[in-house]
Computed example of a mutant assay.
Amino acid sequence: MRALYPGSFDPLTNGHMDLIERALSLFGEVIVAVLRNPNKRPTFSIEQRITQIHASTRHLSGIEIINFEGLTVNCAKTHRADLILRGLRAMSDFEYELQIAHTNSSLEDSLETVFMTTSARHSFLSSSVVKEVARFGGAIEHMVPSEVAFDLNRLFNSAFLPT
């Protein structure tokens, strides 16, 4: 089975990695689909995010990393995905994710959405939290893959240089 795991991944967190690795054991193939959203200003370019994901998943097989724009269901059809994978960290995610799943189902009723909860040790992680901690010089090495931590520290390091 091929699972499509869409998201902005700005940046990729250990919570994302947890879902990717567990989904691989369940489905065999995971397409990590990096969303190019013209309405947002990401911290990292689409190319940087794809490079970070490639570096962070190089030890895994069965991974395909793509970028897409537009509807997730169209991306899933184009890449012959059998299902859409969505992660849940907390109950607060469920209402939004259920709405998205129902919308996708209304557009393509043959495509199922599968929800996976992230491991408890990663449930506090979000890309926004990681960026905020990095911005103020906090330790992020336990929150993101080492390649991502390097890029974030390099990006935000200048904020703590003497003026």
Results as ranks from 00 to 15, higher is better:
residue 159 A to W: 13
residue 102 H to Q: 15
residue 150 F to M: 01
residue 18 D to C: 12
residue 97 E to Q: 03
residue 88 L to P: 12
residue 95 E to K: 11
residue 26 L to P: 03
residue 129 V to G: 05
residue 75 C to N: 03
residue 146 S to V: 12
residue 28 G to N: 05
residue 144 V to H: 01
residue 111 L to V: 13
residue 56 S to Q: 02
residue 1 M to H: 15
residue 80 R to A: 09
residue 122 H to E: 07
residue 146 S to R: 06
residue 24 L to F: 11
residue 39 N to E: 15
residue 147 E to L: 06
residue 55 A to I: 00
residue 81 A to N: 07
residue 71 L to F: 08
residue 135 R to H: 05
residue 5 Y to W: 06
residue 60 L to C: 13
residue 58 R to D: 15
residue 15 G to S: 11
residue 43 T to R: 00
residue 115 F to Q: 00
residue 101 A to W: 04
residue 53 I to G: 09
residue 56 S to P: 15
residue 36 R to W: 14
residue 156 F to R: 00
residue 79 H to F: 08
residue 77 K to Q: 15
residue 114 V to P: 04
residue 15 G to A: 08
residue 68 F to V: 04
residue 121 R to T: 15
residue 13 T to H: 01
residue 148 V to R: 00
residue 84 I to H: 04
residue 79 H to S: 04
residue 80 R to Q: 09
residue 3 A to E: 00
residue 31 I to S: 12
residue 55 A to Y: 10
residue 25 S to A: 14
residue 44 F to N: 00
residue 41 R to V: 14
residue 129 V to R: 00
residue 122 H to K: 08
residue 116 M to W: 02
residue 110 S to V: 09
residue 57 T to H: 05
residue 93 D to I: 10
residue 89 R to H: 03
residue 151 D to S: 06
residue 115 F to K: 05
residue 19 L to N: 12
residue 21 E to L: 08
residue 94 F to H: 04
residue 77 K to E: 13
residue 52 Q to P: 01
residue 43 T to P: 11
residue 32 V to N: 06
residue 42 P to A: 11
